[in-house]
Every structure is written in C-alpha cells, then in structure tokens.
Amino acid sequence: MTKRLNLREIVISSDRLEDCKAYLGGEFHTIVDHALSVGWSLDEVVIALNGLAAEEIAVPDRAITLH
C-alpha cells in the first residue's frame, strides 16, 4: 500500500532541525555570495530567499508541527 503524504501538514523534528540547518548552511551562503557577486544587494537577496521559502510552505490551512 502506498503511503499518501498530507500536503496540508508540515512535521518538523526539533532534534533534526539544527542538523538540517547546518547541512544547508554552506549551500545557503554559496547562493547568497553568488547573488551578491552579480550585483544584488544583501537586502534584496535575503528578502527574495525569504519569499521563496514562504511560497514553498504557503499551502492554505497547512499546519506546522514541531516535535
């Protein structure tokens, strides 16, 4: 039987969250540095990245669960 994901729920494991941030941190800074090197300001870059992240989780009525 195929497990169906609930697309309205985000489940975050608190003990894994910091590990995930550390894992993504290097790539995140690479993206920021690249955008800065082609002329975007730091403010533009972080606001754009924030907007992209917000769009990714902006499903109506989606619940975020931290455990």
Score class of each variant (00 low, 15 high):
residue 5 L to P: 05
residue 52 L to D: 09
residue 54 A to R: 05
residue 38 V to P: 00
residue 43 D to K: 13
residue 4 R to S: 14
residue 9 E to Y: 08
residue 60 P to T: 02
residue 18 E to N: 13
residue 16 R to G: 04
residue 12 I to L: 12
residue 14 S to A: 15
residue 22 A to N: 08
residue 67 H to T: 07
residue 35 A to M: 14
residue 63 A to Q: 11
residue 14 S to H: 14
residue 60 P to W: 01
residue 3 K to H: 06
residue 44 E to V: 00
residue 17 L to Y: 15
residue 66 L to S: 08
residue 38 V to T: 11
residue 5 L to H: 10
residue 19 D to R: 10
residue 52 L to T: 07
residue 35 A to W: 12
residue 66 L to C: 09
residue 63 A to L: 08
residue 7 L to T: 02
residue 51 G to W: 00
residue 22 A to C: 04
residue 31 I to W: 14
residue 40 W to P: 01
residue 47 I to E: 14
residue 63 A to R: 15
residue 49 L to Q: 03
residue 37 S to V: 00
residue 11 V to P: 05
residue 59 V to A: 04
residue 40 W to N: 11
residue 8 R to H: 14
residue 44 E to A: 05
residue 46 V to D: 00
residue 54 A to H: 02
residue 67 H to N: 12
residue 52 L to C: 10
residue 44 E to F: 02
residue 56 E to W: 01
residue 31 I to C: 14
residue 65 T to I: 13
residue 12 I to A: 09
residue 26 G to A: 01
residue 12 I to C: 10
residue 19 D to N: 08
residue 23 Y to K: 13
residue 18 E to Q: 14
residue 18 E to P: 07
residue 4 R to V: 13
residue 59 V to N: 03
residue 13 S to E: 15
residue 21 K to D: 06
residue 64 I to E: 02
residue 58 A to G: 05
residue 23 Y to E: 12
residue 52 L to Q: 09
residue 6 N to V: 12
residue 11 V to Y: 10
residue 5 L to F: 12
residue 56 E to N: 06
residue 24 L to R: 12
residue 32 V to Q: 01
